[in-house]
Amino acid sequence: MHIPDGFLSLPIIVITYVFAISVLAISFRKVKGNVDDRLVPLMALLTALFFAVQMVNYPIIGGTTAHLLGAPALGILLGPWLGSISMAIILVLQCFLFADGGVTALGANILNMAIIGVMVPYAVYLLVSKKGGRGAVSFGIFFGAFLGDVLGAVAAGLELGLSAPIFQYGVSIAVPAMGIHHSVIGLAEGFVTLVVVYSTIKIRPSILTLNRGLSVLIPSAGGVMNE
């Protein structure tokens, strides 16, 4: 989903940069001074692991390949603000070190993957898990991750489609192409996000203190409540 240089028009570049910088600035303000120092290594490790996850390109439909984003898991585990910062770190390093995503498209890539890809899953997870019960929580994680992937791709299709005639396919072709393809990827993302979230909570229950949205997962950690 990384958009390279040369695909986006100037207005789209400017709009996506302004939006991405604004949201990241809000994220930094929200978390500054509120992060438990002892959780810093865990958060850094999760960021590094999801960078590594993105290097694995598995085959999907029509001879194409895909990689997991990791954004939904980061959003649900770290919360929307830290999750977006974590994903932005990955995208910035990918752009400047590996030319994975262009510098002119960095704003769009941050918007699609670090903002939509992180915040949509978190919002869906919060909304659905309010129904209570492990089934609702699990569905919230799975469906949130799926939707985050698909909507991030749809946003990318929209940015490309609105950049016509630079990217000669208009919105009517670019959006369905990206959306349909990523609905397949979204299913894998949903399943992996479920496994990652429950495993992390089980192995490292300290992460439960990171954001209030994780409180519904406290029973999954087991034995961490005051007696």
């Binding site: 509120n34 810093v40 830290l82 990171l210 954001n211």
Partner: peptide, 12 residues
């Protein structure tokens, strides 16, 4: 971004 060694229960 981190603050101190206090486990705050946090508002992120």
């Amino acid at each position: 971004l981190s603050s101190s060694h206090n486990l705050k229960g946090v508002s992120t």
